[in-house]
Design a protein around this nucleic acid. Structure first.
Lengths: 249, 249
DNA sequence: GCAAAAGTGTTCGTTTTACACCCATGT
DNA sequence: ACATGGGTGTAAAACGAACACTTTTGC
């Protein structure tokens, strides 16, 4: 049994040099048609289509989400969804909010609980499950038209991420295990939408003592190779508790 | 029609010189009995009672909450509940989280959306509606035994409030329209559970330029009367956007 | 006049900001 | 040898922390 009136939607964030990305799911028109109430009159359907023009396209994009099974813990279910979409298990996953406008879904009343996840780029292309064949990464500022209120959910996810990243060391979950200082800086610049000064940024990082020099360097780059760092899990746990201040400039 | 599997629960915060308070609702045993599944066997009921000992008391305390009507916006419904409980309309109200453990409610599956509200003490005793006869303020560190996971919800509400109060000027919603600097300080001390230095605290406030001297003073106090301040709504709106840093010491 | 809380400034160390040049690597 | 991004220091200003006494009022 599933709970008809509750769903979970996941905003799955990734990051690479071209910026912040979201993993979206393509749904075809048929799947939607089946979801419309069987006994809906053509007038009703017309109304629904007028209100939600995206539904008349041949296919459209949405967040990865599902209705919640009656017999499953909410957070567990969100983890499962994330596993279906990415094949990953230990992922940073946070609730955003519940979205409960009356008309957010056209044909029925559904309240959705939004989650956001931060995916490490070493893994995010490894797997495309059957269920997730239709998944694709989109750059945050080149989103396709999205169904329902999913654009709002993404926007709110980004707001939460911004808040979180300024005061807790979670941004690192978007980076590979080993990363360069420039990568972290550009991550922060993209998330906070703010240019930062390299020297000051590095001083701030250094003072936290969160990073360990891995001893390795970038390979095959057409310029001076940057050092690769890892982060120190003990210090990470400490900062996760205490918080940090990453409001720069 | 109501949505059986979704409820809203409100953590209603108040503040006075004895500290932070929460408004709780007393439910009697009968009301609960009626809520148990009609066809439950006595064995099932016994199990439920063992798992939730609070239910065997003659009456018990809970957050003010209800199932969500199918035809009402979620946030609107939370506002309505708050109005029922307090008679107040323009109240600072924020979502906490969705709580969705499998066994959080004994007899059925209910996911609840927690909200917290900050109530201005000028008003919170003005009205006790019929519906809200059984409401009572409890000091946060003298809570009665609560049903379900309501203690956890309160704890999470407090965490959110802490986060919020450090970086946004929302704590003021817990004060009267006019208040003294000492009141604000003790508000912050209670919420953040931290003693602060009066001179440094006042300097920090002064720098924000959030407060306006109302020209009035306390009346009938057995010591030097303190100045009463109001807050400047323009500056408030600005700080709400930009954020502020109230991490002291 | 005394009890109780209000109100106020200075010093010192730390943090933040602004700013420009040389270095290492691949082609 | 040149293009590309990597990496570094310093000085001035702002901020945060620590700290103690005087003022006003009611009783």
């Amino acid at each position: 049994m599933i709970l008809n009136s509750i769903s979970v939607d996941c905003v799955i964030f990734g990051f690479d040099k071209s910026g912040l990305k979201v993993l979206l799911n393509q749904i075809d028109r048929e799947a939607l048609q089946n979801a419309l109430p069987k006994q809906a009159s053509s007038d009703q359907i017309k109304q629904i289509y007028e209100k939600h023009p995206v539904l008349t396209q041949d296919n459209y994009w949405s967040l990865f989400g599902e209705h919640v099974p009656e017999q499953q813990d909410l957070d567990e279910f969100a983890k499962d969804l994330l596993f279906q979409a990415t094949g990953l298990n230990d992922v940073y996953l946070q609730q955003i909010n519940a979205f409960g406008s009356l008309d957010r879904v056209p044909y029925t009343r559904v309240i959705t609980i939004g989650y956001y996840a931060l995916i490490n780029p070493d893994y995010y292309s490894l797997r495309q499950s059957n269920l997730a064949k239709s998944l694709q990464w989109f750059n945050l500022n080149e989103l396709p038209t999205l169904c329902f209120d999913h654009e709002i959910i993404i926007q709110q996810a980004l707001n939460k991420l911004r808040q979180e990243v300024m005061y807790h060391p979670v941004g690192f979950h978007l980076l590979s295990e080993k990363f360069t200082l420039t990568e972290i800086q550009s991550l922060y610049e993209v998330i906070l939408n703010k240019k930062m000064d390299t020297r000051n940024f590095r001083k701030k990082l250094a003072k936290m003592e969160l990073l360990i020099d891995s001893g390795e360097k970038q390979q095959n780059v057409a310029h001076r190779a940057a050092k690769l760092y890892q982060f120190d899990i003990q210090v990470y746990e400490k900062l996760k508790m205490e918080g940090l201040n990453f409001r720069i400039e």
